[in-house]
Amino acid sequence: MTDEDIRYDEDSPEITEKMFSKAIAPQRKKTEVKFSLDSEMLEWYTSQKIAYQSLINTLLRSYMEAHNHNRQRV
């Protein structure tokens, strides 16, 4: 899908910069840990010019939630 394919209406208005300026990301308590990652993988994440630690945290959380269906949610 391209940006041109997106239809905006009263149920799905266009998201504006003003909306983003008021957005609040949920804050969870974080604990600093030290562990080893594959060098090639870390190099790729750092080359993306993104907050790679937050992205890795999000990916690990998604994996945890996808595989936690029989356990109590964290």
Rank of each mutant, 00 (worst) to 15 (best):
E10I: 11
Y45P: 06
D9Y: 00
N57I: 08
L37E: 05
R73P: 15
S36T: 13
Q27N: 10
Y45W: 09
E65I: 08
E10W: 00
D38Q: 04
D5N: 11
K22F: 01
S21V: 00
R61D: 10
T16P: 02
P26A: 04
I50H: 06
M19L: 13
N70V: 06
I56W: 03
T31C: 12
D9N: 13
Y63T: 02
T31G: 07
Y8N: 06
S54I: 01
N57C: 13
Y45Q: 04
M41Q: 09
F20W: 08
N70D: 15
M64H: 08
F35V: 10
M1T: 09
T58R: 07
R73Q: 15
R28A: 03
Y63A: 05
Q27G: 09
M41F: 14
A23Q: 07
D3P: 06
D5C: 02
E4N: 12
Y63L: 11
I15V: 15
S39Y: 07
Q48L: 12
E4V: 07
Q72C: 06
K30G: 10
L42P: 00
I56N: 01
F35R: 02
K22S: 12
A51E: 13
I50R: 13
N57R: 15
K22T: 10
E32I: 00
S39G: 11
L55M: 11
F20P: 00
L37P: 02
S54R: 06
A23Y: 12
M19W: 10
S21I: 01
K49C: 06
S36G: 07
R73D: 12
I50C: 15
Q72N: 14
I15Q: 11
K30Q: 14
M1S: 14
P13M: 08
M19V: 10
D38C: 05
I15H: 08
Q48M: 12
W44K: 03
K29Y: 12
R71I: 02
K30W: 04
K29L: 13
P26G: 01
A25S: 07
E65T: 03
S36I: 05
S47Y: 04
L37S: 05
S39V: 10
Q53K: 13
Q53S: 13
S21D: 09
M19S: 03
Q27W: 08
E4T: 12
I24F: 05
E40V: 09
Y52C: 08
D11Y: 01
Y8A: 11
L37G: 04
I24R: 11
W44L: 15
T58M: 08
I6G: 05
S39Q: 14
K30P: 01
M64L: 14
T16L: 12
I6S: 01
T46S: 04
T31M: 13
S47H: 00
F35N: 08
S36P: 00
M41P: 02
E17A: 13
S36Q: 08
W44P: 01
R61H: 02
S12D: 07
R61F: 03
I56A: 14
Q27K: 10
D38E: 09
R7V: 15
E10V: 05
I56H: 01
L42I: 02
E43Q: 13
M1A: 06
T31W: 09
D3T: 07
M64E: 11
E4L: 12
R73C: 07
I56S: 03
M41V: 15
E43Y: 01
I6N: 01
N70A: 11
E14L: 13
D9S: 04
D5L: 07
M1G: 15
